[in-house]
Design a protein around this nucleic acid. Structure first.
Lengths: 262, 262
DNA sequence: CAGTGGTCTAGACCACACT
DNA sequence: GTGTGGTCTAGACCACTGC
């Protein structure tokens, strides 16, 4: 199954697939990548730990070092692992990442983010709820499924800047408490890794301009006529499984959403 | 200079550099990448054309095919070239790109962008101006330098959705006319490539929520109380030279700004 | 069929980190 | 020094394209 680079003809397309341009070929390094991915997913190596060296993996999978290298290259490009010359390859983590908030693209208008330090967090609410139809759909659950919902404020330099609601599947995040959300010294995603073993690997955001309702305006200390950024984020674990829905309202009078296009 | 993989000791750090972690080492494939980049920049191969095969480049630079491959891999990752198995490696272009608008992240709320087809363009204005201090700073020019300014509306399905101002250095875009902006059948960036030989390679955006002034509201057929997305984009050519400033107002009642986070 | 990019291998050597 | 990832090479073969 492994070293014998299986060719397209080893798996003659069983169904004609209605004329779709079927993949029908999987290079060896992709298979190796898949196997490493499985081990990451299964928790064989924990976030922050090093995975076996390229030579070891090559021996384990009975392929050359170069093939393992290419597999790891792709995992590194997807931010699942981090390579450090002379030290090894490490499972990525939201903790100890030189960018404190990997998924937060809101930047202070002047200066860089590192100047203003970490956000101050205030948890408004942290409770068990049942999934609304909308939330359930976004996370691939059923309406009424148990969820954890967190509402909180993030402030920078004492200015309340972000008001957000977070929905997490109740299944995986049963014991989540406001204390946990408040006290963990680092990104929330790092806490979710450590306390619940769930790693958010990528995310998608939909951004709109909106006006806040009365409560929202009050919480953010702005007038209801102040336009705000509405940022709806779905974060995914391995295998594109959605595990978090986040709805944020961002003030953009002192900050802006920064994006790089390639 | 080329094949003899220069080692760190060949260039013993002349200045102590005040303790900075000096690069002090450039792998061969990076040098090759730089040389290919120069040729791209010099227009040796035009957008849409193929560059020489890996074997040819390897012969030209007196390195192995693998080294050229790694150089091209990086250029492909940066979207400067596109590889097509069996055919060759091609200089990227904003024209004939399967995504019509590479830098436009505004998506219709329902369905995908390919359904709604290209935007209808209406040019409000296309004139020579002098750079304001702000515009000059954004583009690395001097206040008062000649510029071309374009103001236009983009509509989708007949609904005016984007109002934007575009500033281009007068130097490079002297003869730009409203007719050109209107009549070119494809992305504006493709027209700039073809007619002015300037390729926008990457861009940065700063996004805020704002309220339109009277004129803006009128142009977009919305009330002045409708919050809009303000998108300020700086687009760069090769070597990180800024060549365009764009300020857009996006309606987000039927569309949203879509972003992927890794 | 020839030519292109894509995969895979094996081996040598370099740069970096730790001990 | 030893072990790690990073670079470079040379050669073989595979998959896709177009003549």
């Amino acid at each position: 199954m492994l070293p014998s680079s299986l060719s397209a003809t080893d798996f003659p397309d069983p169904l004609p697939s209605a004329g779709l341009p079927v993949p029908a070929f999987s290079p060896l390094y992709q298979q190796i990548k898949g196997l490493i991915l499985q081990s990451l997913q299964a928790g064989e190596w924990k976030p922050g730990e090093s995975i076996p060296s390229e030579m070891e993996l090559a021996a384990r999978f009975k392929v050359s070092q170069g093939t393992v290298r290419k597999a790891i290259d792709e995992l590194a490009a997807e931010n699942l692992v981090t390579r450090r010359q002379g030290k090894g390859t490490f499972v990525s983590t939201h903790a100890e990442q030189h960018v404190q908030y990997r998924f937060l693209k809101l930047m202070p208008d002047s200066g860089d983010a590192s100047v203003e330090g970490p956000a101050e967090r205030f948890i408004i609410d942290c409770k068990r709820v049942r999934a609304s139809a909308e939330v359930a759909r976004a996370l691939g659950l059923r309406t009424g499924d148990p969820m954890m919902q967190v509402r909180r404020i993030l402030s920078f330099s004492g200015i309340p800047t972000i008001l957000e609601d977070i929905w997490l599947p109740g299944q995986a995040f049963k014991g989540l408490t406001a204390a946990q959300m408040t006290n963990y010294p680092g990104p929330t995603y790092a806490m979710l890794e450590l306390d619940f073993g769930v790693r958010m690997v990528r995310a998608e955001e939909k951004i709109r301009a909106v006006l806040p309702d009365g409560e929202q305006a009050e919480r953010l200390h702005v007038s209801p006529a102040t336009p705000l950024l509405s940022v709806e984020r779905i974060a995914y674990t391995y295998n594109d499984v959605p595990m978090e829905l986040r709805r944020g309202l961002y003030r953009t009078d002192t900050h802006h959403y920064h994006n790089e296009l390639n």
